[in-house]
């Protein structure tokens, strides 16, 4: 199973914000087996999907030169569960950056209603402590981003189509 909890990027502006969608299906093991008899998408995986959306937003802002990891979930509020058939509309806003990390505020909407609000903090792996090895095999991240249609929608800060970074 691939650890991809975002189906598609739908909007991406470098250094600003990103949007994406996640479709919840009954044939997903995590939906079917999480709470037998009452299928819903695990809230923790909504955090993971929002972290993937905003993690790419952060990494791209630094031209993929930093290794971005989710360090803290500062806030997570759920207003309703996500059930099979739902399409979750994820939004992530890059709020602030430091040389060691970044914070993003995120939301999930379903049927036009606010479904979840999540604030995330990311840290960049320190080469002194964690070495310099990439978190991905060569080309894997680029493949993943292409699968998610990132380059169909992504624009740079000037609104021009985002070029594929040589660091990917």
């Amino acid at each position: 199973m691939r650890w991809l909890w975002l189906d598609r990027f739908t909007e991406f502006q470098s250094g600003s914000h990103a949007r994406g969608i996640k479709c919840v299906a009954l044939d997903e093991e995590v939906v079917d087996e999480y709470f037998p008899g009452h299928p819903f998408f695990p809230p923790t995986l909504i955090i993971e999907g929002l972290a993937q959306l905003s993690g790419i937003l952060v990494a791209e802002h630094f031209d993929f030169k930093v290794r971005v990891v989710l360090a803290k979930v500062n806030r997570a509020v759920y207003h309703r569960s996500a059930r099979p058939g739902d399409q979750l509309h994820y939004y992530a806003k890059l709020e602030n950056t430091q040389s060691e990390g970044a914070i993003c505020s995120c939301t999930s909407h379903c049927d036009g209603q606010l479904q979840a609000e999540v604030d995330l903090m990311f840290a960049f792996l320190d080469a002194k402590r964690f070495g310099v090895e990439s978190m991905f095999n060569k080309g894997d991240l680029l493949t993943m981003l292409r699968l998610m249609d990132l380059f169909h929608v992504a624009v740079d800060a000037d609104g021009q189509p985002l070029e594929i970074s040589p660091n990917l």
Binding site: A71, K72, E95, N96, Q98, E100, G101, M121, A123
Partner: peptide
């Protein structure tokens, strides 16, 4: 250590 980054973000805001 990771909390210090969080504290910095919160104080900046």
């Amino acid at each position: 250590s990771i909390d210090f980054l969080d504290i910095v973000f919160k104080l900046e805001k």
